[in-house]
Design a protein around this nucleic acid. Structure first.
Length: 480
DNA sequence: AATATCATCAACCGCATTAGA
DNA sequence: ATCTAATGCGGTTGATGATAT
């Protein structure tokens, strides 16, 4: 980690981090604050001298000490109370991305990378939701990994990271779209006046607030939206589903976003219970003892946040059979018994009854009951991961990487394994959470924050690791 | 050895959403 | 119902170290 280096060679961050700037009222705040107010932004960052840039160890210690002592509360008041010249946002970010004691350290495992790919295929760039499935990992971390590493790997293996289709397929789609566009252009004859009108509409700045106009840009950035730059329309379901090759196969008119399909995700078919205390970020953990389907996310013990609730989804969507086509062809010998998987790897889903019960009034709990065709996930049809996607020469190497645990686990099998996401990933976390705490956190943790850690661990059953190991052992039919 | 390029990642920015007055 | 502040999220930037030329 870079910070460790900083800590070693640059104890005085003010002098040694050229990127650190001191934003002063004199040269910045007046104008920027005024502009911020004009633009509707909150001006908290401009009320006082605020430091920017990298955090010094002293600042980290202050923040960590404060949170250790007082717990998490109002971030906007944290800087003042903790004696930091930072804005609350900055403190929050620093805590979430760096100081949280439950953060996992070290490189991402192959399993984690595969999981990220799988989740990205369903969720798109919803990093926080992806991170919620990877205990100890932050959205920022995952986002960076995706942008710097996974994207490249996927392209090398002939997979378009945005669509998760093969690159050739994407090319074909583009050509088809081009042809269609050309044809439609030929068919539409626009008289000059009409053309002028269209151009005027396009070129004229939207007569809405700056926020609204920015929404256009934002939507455009989301790879799942498929929204036009020129409209503020919500993403069309067809466009999203097209990622899965389903646009023409679904008749629903419901607005569909990637997270909607999370309702089909296998995690929700399983039983989950939060592991309280071990980790503070929202996470879902498989609990073999639970008898009811529940999906609860917990955050910090001192500030409970509403559970992760999937976006509201029109029930009609789930009454419509959805056909999802992974971009990768499958071995023909794979599990023909489950679902209906055609030779192209097309897996038809049949969504059963779906109810999304969210306690609207108190917001304290939510339950999602879903009877999806979970068999889908027992099929290689969902095997979008690197291992089964690659036809390149790297495949063998990749497989060897995947087998670093000594087990030959196909990703699809991994997905269908009951302890998927729960025990396995959790177990990794269990191993890393405290043993791989960042060094600079260590020196503090040994001091004042020890009590905090103890509190966190107090509610954690002592034998949880053992149980997870036992489940692993049973699942693999061997002792670990 | 010097320079250019690439890869990584912490942190910032700005928008959307939520909560509370 | 409206407004404001706080929070959360995703995109982007830029510093830094590693590697290539």
């Amino acid at each position: 980690m870079i910070y460790g280096t900083h800590l070693a060679v640059a104890p005085n961050a003010d002098m040694d981090h050229p990127r650190e700037q001191h934003v002063t009222l004199e040269n910045h705040n007046c104008i920027a604050g005024f502009v911020a107010l004009l633009m509707g932004r909150h001006s908290c960052c401009y009320k006082q001298k605020l430091r920017k840039g990298l955090w010094s160890p002293e600042e980290d210690e202050k923040l960590l000490n404060y949170i250790t002592k007082h717990g998490l509360g109002c971030w906007s008041s944290v800087p003042k109370l903790a004696g930091l010249q930072r804005c609350g946002k900055s403190c929050r970010l620093r805590w979430i991305n760096y100081l949280r004691p439950d953060l996992k350290r070290g490189a991402f495992s192959q399993q984690e990378e595969n999981l990220i790919i799988e989740l990205h295929a369903v969720l798109g760039n919803r990093w926080s939701q992806i991170a919620a499935q990877l205990p100890g990992r932050t959205d920022n971390e995952i986002k960076n990994l995706w942008n710097s590493c996974i994207k490249k790997k996927l392209r090398q293996r002939g997979i378009d990271p945005n669509t998760h289709k093969s690159l050739s397929e994407v090319e074909n789609d583009k050509e088809k779209q081009q042809l269609t566009a050309d044809k439609s252009n030929e068919n539409v004859s626009i008289v000059p006046n009409e053309l002028n009108l269209i151009e005027a509409t396009i070129l004229k700045p939207p007569a809405v607030s700056s926020r609204s106009s920015n929404v256009i840009t934002t939507n455009n950035n989301k790879d799942w939206s498929g929204g036009s730059n020129l409209t503020n329309a919500p993403p069309k379901q067809e466009i999203f589903l097209d990622r899965f090759g389903t646009s023409h196969e679904s008749s629903t008119t419901a607005s569909c976003r990637p997270s909607d399909l999370m309702a089909y995700f296998p995690f929700q078919k399983l039983d989950y219970k939060p592991i309280i205390g071990l980790s503070m970020n929202p996470k879902l953990c498989y609990n073999p003892n639970s008898s009811s389907s529940e999906m609860i996310s917990h955050e910090f013990n001192s500030s409970m946040t509403p559970p992760t609730v999937l976006p509201s989804v029109s029930a009609s969507m789930f009454q419509t059979p959805i056909c999802v086509r992974p971009s990768v062809s499958l071995p023909s010998d794979h599990n023909p018994a489950v679902g209906s998987c055609d030779v192209n790897g097309v897996q038809n889903w049949e969504a059963g009854s779906f109810s999304n019960n969210v306690s609207g009034s108190n917001g304290s709990s939510s339950s999602i009951e879903l009877q999806s065709n979970a068999n889908f996930f027992e099929s290689s049809a969902f095997s979008w991961g690197l291992a089964d996607c690659g036809k390149s020469s790297d495949e063998a190497h990749l497989r060897s990487l995947e087998n670093e645990t000594g087990e030959d686990i196909k990703w699809c099998e991994y997905l269908s394994t009951p302890f998927f996401l729960g025990s396995t990933i959790q177990n990794q976390t269990s191993h890393h959470v405290y043993s791989e705490m960042k060094p600079e956190t260590h020196f503090i943790a040994q001091g004042s924050s020890t009590s905090w850690l103890q509190n966190q661990q107090a509610s954690q059953p002592a034998d949880i690791y053992t149980k997870d190991l036992q489940r692993l052992a049973v699942a693999f039919g061997q002792s670990i």
